[in-house]
Amino acid sequence: MTIKAISDLHLASQANRDALAALPSFGDDWLIVAGDVAERFDHMKLAFETLTQRFAKVFWVPGNHDLWTVGGDGDGPALVGEERYRALVDLARAHGIVTPEDPYETWTGAGGPCVIAPLFLLYDYSFRPDHVGRDEVVAWAREEGAVCADEMFLSPAPWPSRDAWCAGRIEEAERRLSAIPAGMETILVNHYPLRKDLIHIPRAPRFTPWCGTKRTEDWHRRFNARVVVSGHLHVRRTDRRDGTRFEEVSLGYPRQWDQSRGMAPYLRDILPEGPPSQMLASWRR
């Protein structure tokens, strides 16, 4: 038995949907899906149906694309903000998938025991230079061509801002993580990286404000993480900080992975540990 992980399936692409359909069964293995599955509910449903047929247990956390409201939504409602997130949680639960709203599961296979903690933390624009104010950050990023479509498509409703929604999510996650028994190791799963120094996007260096929050900088130590799993950057790589392994597990858009290999080789072994992942050379948001 193995825990595997992947993120950023981006099923708006037919090539990515074809690769998902061709994914073989992994028997008793568990799978972590670290967000950005799709913008449409019908594509989310396709992913949940397919992945639960291929793996014994599936975990999902939302990415920003999952939370976008972009008009037509397949066979699902065009919901926004918190209401959209809750509808996605309901959809995942209907397929037996573990979400950030569910009790944490404990892996007792090879490399365990570890508590798997799916997180939904968003971002608060704090991954910006000290001299750039919060009200200036979007304009500052745009000066070098960094623009995030979240500013148009990711509503925080009913929260007053994405920053406030992020703060609420952090407080809830801190409460739950603090209740894990002392000494128990964890696998922390979030769409966004937990540390700014893990962001490697040289082609868009000013995209960082949409990549996380400084409030999680020490969570790998504070919550005894064996592994931290994230996506969002489309730069697959393995890093280590303070003895904790950080895995960026994105698949990405069709131009960012070798379609001739299929999706299976891009599933990252979390436990037991596999060979380190290498940085993806190309990046485009």
Rank of each mutant, 00 (worst) to 15 (best):
A38W: 02
A157N: 03
P103A: 12
A179I: 02
A34M: 12
E171A: 15
V132P: 14
L177V: 10
E101T: 08
L198I: 03
R215L: 14
A12Y: 15
R241N: 07
L233E: 11
P205M: 11
V70Q: 08
L9M: 13
H95Y: 15
G133Y: 00
S161K: 14
A15Q: 08
I170D: 08
D42Y: 04
P158W: 13
G231C: 02
E143K: 09
D135V: 05
P103T: 08
L122W: 15
L233C: 03
R176P: 07
H200D: 13
F26K: 09
W159L: 10
L251Y: 06
R215E: 15
G133S: 07
A12M: 15
A173T: 14
F55R: 06
D163Y: 06
D239P: 00
G252P: 14
A87M: 01
A5V: 03
V80G: 01
E83C: 05
R255F: 13
A141Q: 02
W30P: 00
E143F: 03
H95M: 02
P202R: 11
G145D: 12
F59A: 01
W68F: 15
G109V: 11
D218V: 03
R240K: 11
A19H: 01
F55A: 01
A34H: 12
A281P: 04
L51R: 06
A87E: 10
R206N: 11
A179W: 00
K196P: 05
A34I: 00
P103N: 08
P158A: 09
M184L: 12
E151P: 05
R236P: 05
F153L: 13
S161H: 11
A21C: 04
I3G: 03
A92V: 02
S161W: 15
R142S: 07
V229S: 04
R215A: 14
E143G: 01
A173K: 05
A149V: 03
R245K: 13
L11F: 02
G71V: 06
E171Y: 01
L188P: 09
D239W: 13
A47Q: 09
G111H: 06
G133D: 06
P113I: 07
I187Y: 12
S13F: 14
A173P: 10
E144M: 11
P209W: 01
A92W: 00
E39I: 08
L20T: 07
Q278A: 12
L177A: 11
I270H: 07
E136P: 04
L88T: 04
V70F: 01
L9A: 08
L91N: 13
L23F: 06
D42E: 15
P265Q: 07
G35D: 13
P209V: 02
I201W: 07
P62G: 02
A179N: 09
R54C: 12
Y85F: 15
A164V: 11
A56T: 05
D124M: 03
Y253Q: 10
E49L: 05
